[in-house]
């Protein structure tokens, strides 16, 4: 488990990461979202041991990361602009990482490279941005580390490749309990892969929750009520947000599915149905409750 306690990093007078407390469990996909400058990259660089915290600590299974080879051998960091050795080919990078990560899976590297259509002997300098991203993901996956830190990794990948990478992540999570931590400014990218999401804003964690928990506790209800009845009159329904178009109400409500269903059934509406919320909608609701306008924070 990765644990950040009171993690703080300042760049001169700019507070990049402000007393963050977070836990990232193994086998989960942790999504880190926030606008540019929210502190996502800084947080990942702190977790990777690139930056030294000014205050607080960051540990992997209780071991501090900074200047700790054993802790560092447990993750692979893919930065938003990954560096490759000068004039290196994919094969050169493999040779390099093989020395750094003893668990590096060479066979799989060749296989994935072939699957992604990347030439082993071609200079990486001639690759497109997307191809470089693909190569860094392949290197990361094949390194066989417990954690994979991805900083805006999906940015620049086409939708097909994005799905492929996601499926690779899922496969490795299932197979060897790999834990990807993905930083992105795009909620939609994380929606179908993350188990837990942390929302960063101005260096602080605004929200950190399990996606399932969030999804189980928040629902969208579309309903048409009896004449003269208002949604606020429905007993036991905790409404976060309300919209209406004529008699058709769209409500965002807090509570478990059964609880919401029973509340709705009890007032015998003309029509009602529960619609799944997108991650974005969940965040909009959650952050509005917290007094923020999510549209200004992400997307």
């Amino acid at each position: 488990m990765i644990e950040a306690v009171n993690l703080t990093k300042k760049f001169e007078d700019i507070m990049a990461v402000d007393h963050i407390n977070a836990s990232i469990k193994e086998g989960n996909v942790f999504g880190l979202v926030g606008t540019n400058g929210a502190g996502k990259s800084t947080f990942l660089r702190l977790v990777s041991g690139i930056l030294k915290p000014d205050e607080g600590s960051i540990t992997i299974d209780g071991e501090p990361v900074y200047e700790n080879e054993r802790a560092k051998a447990r993750f692979f960091y893919i930065s938003d602009e990954q560096y490759f050795l000068p004039n290196a080919t994919s094969a050169d990078m493999m040779a390099f990482y093989r020395k750094m990560y003893p668990q590096f899976d060479e066979k799989r590297f060749h296989y994935l490279l072939d699957s992604f259509g990347l030439q082993e002997k071609r200079k990486i300098g001639t690759f497109s941005k997307g191809m470089k991203k693909q190569l860094s993901v392949i290197c990361g996956i094949c390194s066989g580390t417990d954690y994979l830190f991805c900083d805006e990794t999906f940015d620049g990948l086409d939708p097909v490749m994005r799905q492929t990478v996601k499926s690779l992540f899922v496969g490795d999570m299932a197979e060897r309990n790999m834990t990807p931590i993905i930083a992105s400014h795009n909620l939609r990218e994380l929606e179908d892969i993350c188990d837990h999401v942390g929302l960063l804003h101005k260096g602080g964690i605004l929200l950190s929750k399990d996606l399932d928990e969030m999804k189980m506790n928040i629902h969208k209800v579309q309903c048409v009520l009896e004449n003269g009845m208002k949604p606020e009159q429905i007993p036991g329904l905790s409404i976060i947000k309300k919209e209406n178009r004529g008699r058709l109400y769209t409500l965002t409500v807090r509570g478990e599915k059964e609880q919401v269903e029973s509340a709705m059934t009890a007032v015998d509406p003309v029509f009602y149905e529960l619609i799944p919320l997108s991650l974005e909608e969940i965040f909009i609701s959650e952050t509005e409750v917290a007094g923020y306008d999510i549209k200004k924070l992400v997307l």
Partner: peptide, 16 residues
């Protein structure tokens, strides 16, 4: 002097 290179060299499991 390059953030890209620093991220690369300082994230791999070898002490500075």
């Amino acid at each position: 002097n390059s953030r890209k290179k620093v991220d690369f060299y300082h994230s791999i499991p070898i002490k500075r």
